[in-house]
Amino acid sequence: MENCNEIERLSIAISGSPEDVSLFMERGKAYFRAHDFGHALDDFNQVLLRDEANMEVRQYVKMINEILEYRYKDIYNP
């Protein structure tokens, strides 16, 4: 519930300031905390489009990809 409210609040803020990278960063983390890895990845990729060298985001993206690979590599490469 806590994460849902935070995501909602950040989504409203992003619609008002779509160029603010820090908002995508925060919403990406909120999605991550809620285990909504697909949406988290979308937001982190938005951050990387504007700040390619951001190490923290790169770590999140790497981790999400590893988590998703456990399941989806098995689906596509049984």
Binding site: H35, M63, E66, Y70, R71
Partner: peptide
């Protein structure tokens, strides 16, 4: 992957 969150992420997803 047991202590760094990767396994936990997979298990949450499942």
């Amino acid at each position: 992957p047991g202590e760094d969150g990767k396994l936990q992420g997979y298990l949450e997803m499942m």
